[in-house]
């Protein structure tokens, strides 16, 4: 029997052995589970940021959405502020858990004004006493994210990508949440705009004490904002460590290859550090390799890796790595 998981009160968000399998039709009556997320655990303290990185398709978005119970998880538990998140309790927790989306175009309804987009969570939870109060709250939110209050009655399509993302952030902040999932919230933006928006996320965290799960496929972006970073590969966590520790001392071969792909400002440094080019493609999550999911592309792979899945083990100071040979 598996031991029972008990939530720890020092954490705001705790995911324990979270699993999300999507049934994929293989025929008229048959389906096969696509293991988008397969046993992921992590904790986030109040006001803290956990970065989540990994290649596209490794299940980052699914982690974020399952956490907010937009999907019905196949297994595992999620606790928010010590309360178990399930179909019953989620209604009362929606106010506290929000999300910022990747695509600044599809995340804003083209038929709604900025005011109504930001006001929607206020409307849903009836968080105002009068029309004027609603308007004041919306204008305050717009100011908070650096939007010009005069544009409240405009439509989203009239704004640039960066401004649209600010609108999405203002919407996420409307209910005064304690936790926000930022799903590649800056990936679609120009590099210079990315910097502004990330900076804003940090400012908002300082001001409001909100915790983030900051998802990106780019280690650079995550490194700047996160206290801790988790690296995902094919629906599993392969390494978690403090942000600086992970950058200076990556242990898992996959993390090493990710870091080696980071562009360096100093050509000498860049030379010193050889790029590890990963061979082969990411295996399909429908056809997971046995044992370690990374073994098809890992140069340290041994027979042991083929036979057994490596568990996450502590390599000192909370640096967790799932690898047999490193």
């Amino acid at each position: 029997m598996e031991e029972k998981f008990t939530p720890d009160s020092q954490y705001l968000v705790q995911a324990h052995d979270m699993k999300m399998y999507f049934p994929i039709k293989t025929g008229w009556f048959h389906s096969k589970p696509l293991k988008a997320v397969d046993g992921v655990s992590f904790d986030i303290r109040p006001g803290e940021t956990l970065g989540l990185v990994g290649e596209s398709g490794c299940g980052k978005t699914t982690v974020g959405r399952t956490l907010l119970r937009l999907y019905n998880p196949t297994g595992g538990e999620v606790y928010f502020d010590g309360k178990k998140v399930d179909a019953k309790s989620i209604g009362g927790l929606r106010k506290d858990m929000q999300m910022v989306f990747q695509d600044p175009y599809s995340s804003l309804n083209p038929r709604m004004t900025v005011e109504d987009i930001i006001g929607e969570p206020l409307d849903v939870h009836k968080l105002y006493t009068s029309r004027q109060d609603r308007r004041d709250k919306i204008l305050h939110l717009m100011e908070l994210v650096g939007l010009n209050a005069e544009h409240a009655t405009r439509y989203a399509h009239e704004f640039s990508g960066g401004q649209r993302q600010r609108i999405g952030i203002a919407r996420a902040l409307a209910t005064n949440p304690r936790f926000i999932v930022c799903d590649e919230a800056v990936s679609a933006l120009d590099v210079s705009i990315q910097a502004q928006v990330i900076n804003m996320f940090e400012d908002l965290q300082k001001q409001l004490g909100v915790a983030y799960l900051f998802i990106a496929h780019d280690l650079l972006v995550v490194h700047h904002i996160s206290k801790r970073i988790a690296v995902m590969y094919l629906g599993r966590m392969v390494e978690t460590a403090d942000s600086n520790e992970l950058n200076s001392n990556p242990i898992h071969p996959y993390t090493q290859s990710l870091l080696s792909a980071v562009p360096y400002p100093d050509p000498k440094q860049a030379k010193e550090r050889k790029r590890i080019i990963l061979e082969g493609d990411v295996p399909s999550p429908l056809n997971m390799p046995s044992g370690c999911p990374f073994r098809t592309r890992c140069r340290y792979a041994t027979d042991e890796c083929k036979a057994k899945m490596p568990p996450l083990t502590d390599r000192g100071g909370g640096h967790m790595v799932a690898c047999w040979n490193k």
Partner: peptide
């Protein structure tokens, strides 16, 4: 296998991180 894992150290540059060429 010749993988260098210490081309920079965040401690040396507390303000401007060497990784932040883009950011």
């Amino acid at each position: 296998m010749g993988i260098s894992t210490e081309p920079y150290s965040p401690d040396k540059t507390p303000k401007k991180h060497p990784l932040s060429l883009q950011l």
